[in-house]
Design a protein around this nucleic acid. Structure first.
Lengths: 343, 343
DNA sequence: ACGAGGTGTGAGAGCGTTCTCACCACGCCC
DNA sequence: GGGCGTGGTGAGAACGCTCTCACACCTCGT
């Protein structure tokens, strides 16, 4: 039965102190378990806390400690479909696991469109959080700037677009894409296309750069018709693959810049009667769950996700701990080719 | 160039007041734009705010106003894949759009596993947020109870499992499923199966109940082999459909309890050489984006998502506004069958 | 000309914590 | 037996804001 009277007044430290027969200071000491408290006092306080169902008021505490024990994961993306990307879900999971036995809480802020971005920036600047992990993908995003300007510690997930001196953590996308493409070359393939990510994203560009670098190093520079731009979704991968197959009938391999897109590409290849990997070899990127379960299982480039989320948290906590005086570095994590059946 | 010295001290109301040549109280009035301020004072304050790049400290403000202007969307789900569900993304989008021109900020809290649930509950009880919208799907979830016990206003997205008196907003899942199944009956189908949702979720049960009710009303109660349990994912839909097709070779229609699952089911049907809708008619649920673009376009049950997110926000703000004294009701929103090619 | 009513302003008391001191009682060593 | 650390405690000042008052000033109506 829920009583629907006015909300009961939440008890304060003062009241706990009165009930326990000690001073406010002592209660505070018990709450923050400082060593210098006698066992009797401690017990009395615990009993009083229990009796009153006392919960400390975070606002009051934060006001004096200047910490909120909260860090924000900000997702700046007009396109809501990023939620659907398994990669994003894995980041969230990794971060909250990493913070699980910390004092820190993790909150997600989604900002689509200018108004929401400004709202998020305001939220951050007003001191709701101790630090921000920002996922910002598109070139024209203004949130990185807004947040970098604020005094709140900031770490970027993914290399920033311009050479802005903000610490970040990223996978070696160029290296991974190069390795994937080299692998295809090593298999003896010669007509190697790519389904790239969106080219207004650093990650899209980097993976394309790696692909090109590998081809150039082999003395077989990529021609434009071998490149089809996708959007990191399965449907986009299908579209791009269709385009590619139309333009390059003798295609014998393709590097697809994300696993969801690769799944879409596989579907198109199958529908077109091409066998994978016999006729067309396929390499994906991300080592998403689906890569192991699709047909055929996908050779792909794995990112060390735990290392990356760990890096994000470390870099951020380091800044927070140092009171903003530490110039945190950045971290680029190596990738690994995972061989399965598709190439 | 970012200076990496110690963080600059953030200016306070006091300093703004000094610079503007007025009192703290007047600055406060300007900040909260109260009417009773002379234009000169207002201008002076604005200039000072600008000059010092003053940003009010929310902790201090919240301490006295006892409001945080933040509401939390709590997602209690051990399975991270819910992020991938387009339905969830649409809820987030709807809510933040609804709150866009409010003072309220929206934060997402994800709780997988007991520890994180307790962390979230603590976060809420400590007064970080003014209210909570909770998405909790599974029967054994303890977060609804934890949060209902706290004095923070709460609204559930989706009917709660037991008859707990917590306000909620839900679609009429039973009605929608009944309508979908009736539609299949009206098409003259007689061997109508269903791919249900997980049966430890209210939404899964309700849609199964609706399906059964329609068949019972037609005098053709469902037999057990006509029901295959899915998990709301595309892959799960495929699996369930495969099972169904194996057990019931003469199946001529299927009600699939979510669109992603229906997409998976369509794929299996096609692979099995059944034409849709000629051999097997298919109806989905949710009217997800993919329903319109898949092949064939999916007949499905649409939920009034804007109405639902609006209801969530309204119910919550109502409670918040009344200081917890209002016993908010609940809201069940009607669904609509959207006819496309698949049935 | 004088009080009534409104309008702009500032002083100051909180809000619920933490944290620095100062204090008191010990037991200890020389 | 008188300083001297030392462990436990409480008084009280912050923290940065809001909000209630009281006060000064300015019209008006009479």
């Amino acid at each position: 039965m829920t009583t629907t009277g006015p909300r009961p007044p939440t008890p304060t430290l003062e009241q706990v102190a009165a009930l326990a027969g000690v001073s406010r200071a002592t209660v505070s000491r018990v709450i923050n378990d400082s060593p210098r408290v006698s066992p009797e006092a401690r017990d009395a306080v615990h009993a009083a806390v229990e009796a009153l169902r006392y919960v400390p008021n975070r606002m009051a505490r934060s006001l004096v400690t200047r910490r909120t024990d909260t860090i924000a994961l900000v997702l700046s993306e007009s396109n809501t479909q990023i939620f659907a990307d398994p990669f994003f879900a894995r980041i969230v999971r990794g971060l909250s696991a990493r913070l699980a036995d910390t004092e820190q809480n993790l909150v997600l802020l989604a900002a689509r469109g200018r108004r929401e971005q400004e709202k998020v920036a305001r939220y951050v600047r007003q001191g709701h959080v101790d630090g921000v992990i920002l996922i910002s993908l598109h070139r024209d995003d203004l949130l990185p700037d807004l947040l970098a300007r604020s005094p709140v510690p900031l770490v970027l997930s993914g290399r920033p677009f311009d050479g802005r001196p903000v610490p970040y953590v990223d996978a070696d996308n160029v290296g991974g894409a190069r390795a994937a493409t080299s692998h295809l070359l090593r298999l003896g393939r010669s007509r190697i296309g790519t389904v790239s990510g969106p080219l207004d994203m650093v990650v899209g560009l980097d993976r394309l750069t790696g692909y090109r670098a590998a081809l150039a190093a082999a003395g077989a520079p990529a021609s434009p018709e071998l490149v089809a731009e996708g959007d990191f979704t399965e449907a986009g991968g299908s579209r791009a693959m269709t385009r590619l197959l139309g333009d390059v009938p003798d295609l014998d391999a393709v590097f697809v810049a994300s696993d969801p897109m690769a799944v879409g590409a596989l579907r198109v290849l199958r529908a077109a009667g091409r066998r994978v990997p016999e006729d067309v070899a396929v390499v994906g990127f991300d080592d998403a769950e689906v890569a192991a379960t699709c047909d055929p299982p996908l050779t792909t480039v794995a990112q060390p996700l735990d290392e990356m989320t760990g890096g994000l948290v470390d870099l951020l906590l380091e800044q927070i701990g140092s009171g903003g005086s530490a110039a945190a570095g950045s971290r680029v994590c190596g990738t690994a080719l995972v061989r399965r059946a598709s190439a």
